[in-house]
Computed example of a mutant assay.
Amino acid sequence: MTPFGDYLELVRAPAVLTVLGDTMAGGAAAGRVLSGRRLWMPLASACLYAGGMALNDYADRDVDARERPQRPLPSGRVSAGSALAAASALTVAGLGLCAVAGGRRALAVGVPLAGSIWTYDLIAKNHTLIGAVSMGSCRALDVLMGAGAGQMRPALGAAGIMGGHTVAVTLLSRGEVEGTDTVTASGVAATTGLVAAAVVAGSSGPPARMLAVLAATAAYAARCGPAQIRAARSPAAANALAATRAGIRAMIPLQAALAVRYGHPTAAGALVAVDVLGKILRSRPKARKVSES
Rank of each mutant, 00 (worst) to 15 (best):
A222D: 04
G27T: 12
C98Y: 02
R37G: 08
M162D: 11
L144M: 13
W40N: 08
A89S: 10
V63G: 02
L107N: 06
L55M: 05
V11W: 01
A190R: 13
L95F: 09
D60M: 01
M1E: 13
A124D: 15
G205D: 05
G110N: 06
P226Y: 00
L43G: 12
A238C: 03
L281S: 09
E176Q: 08
R66M: 11
G103Q: 09
G160Q: 09
L84C: 02
A149P: 03
D121S: 04
R174C: 01
G247R: 02
A155M: 09
P253W: 05
L107F: 06
A246Y: 00
T170Q: 10
G110W: 00
V19M: 14
L39S: 04
A219C: 05
R38K: 07
L254D: 06
T182G: 02
G21T: 08
T244C: 02
Y49R: 12
T166A: 15
D22W: 15
G96Q: 12
A132Y: 04
R174P: 00
P3N: 10
S186A: 15
A222F: 06
A89C: 12
A243E: 03
N126K: 12
V260E: 14
G5F: 13
F4H: 09
L84I: 03
V100L: 12
H165G: 15
D22E: 13
